[in-house]
């Protein structure tokens, strides 16, 4: 199929969780991607940073809480998670509010990383 070929693939998450399904279904792609041994990174920008805001409690809306899955990503060797600095600030959040270890980068720094990718998948 694609033996030996390693591409840099970045998943760009810019949407809040629960209001739409994009965050959940994006995460499902990332989990499958882990099996392909590619150079995977995830970036959270704009409302996408809300996906990682600690303490989701979804009982009241009867929707599955998928936040624990982000904590499992490390087990799949997916540990390049970048969060946009400006997005955190605009939402009154800080790195401490994130449910997993992340690297905070400015939009421009994320833009530079985007430049280096082979593939960008956005949902």
């Amino acid at each position: 199929m694609s033996e030996g070929q390693v591409k840099k693939i970045m998943y760009v998450n810019r949407k809040a969780p629960y209001g739409t399904i994009y965050a959940l279904e994006s995460l499902e792609v990332v989990l499958i991607a882990a099996a392909f041994d590619q150079d995977v990174s995830l970036v959270f920008m704009d409302d996408g940073v809300y996906q990682l805001k600690k303490g989701h409690q979804t009982k009241g809306i009867e929707v599955k809480n998928f936040q624990p899955t982000y904590r499992a990503l490390d087990d799949y060797d997916i540990n390049k998670l970048y969060v946009e600095k400006e997005a955190l600030e605009a939402r009154g959040l800080s790195e401490d509010d994130m449910c997993v270890p992340v690297e905070v980068k400015t939009a421009a720094e994320i833009g530079k990383l985007m430049d280096e990718q082979d593939v960008l998948l956005s949902f």
């Binding site: 810019r14 704009d46 939009a107 530079k112």
Partner: peptide, 15 residues
């Protein structure tokens, strides 16, 4: 939406 702003903030010169 703020999509254009987000794009312009990340886009590198010459893009």
């Amino acid at each position: 939406r703020n999509t254009l702003d987000s794009c312009l903030a990340a886009a590198q010169p010459g893009a």
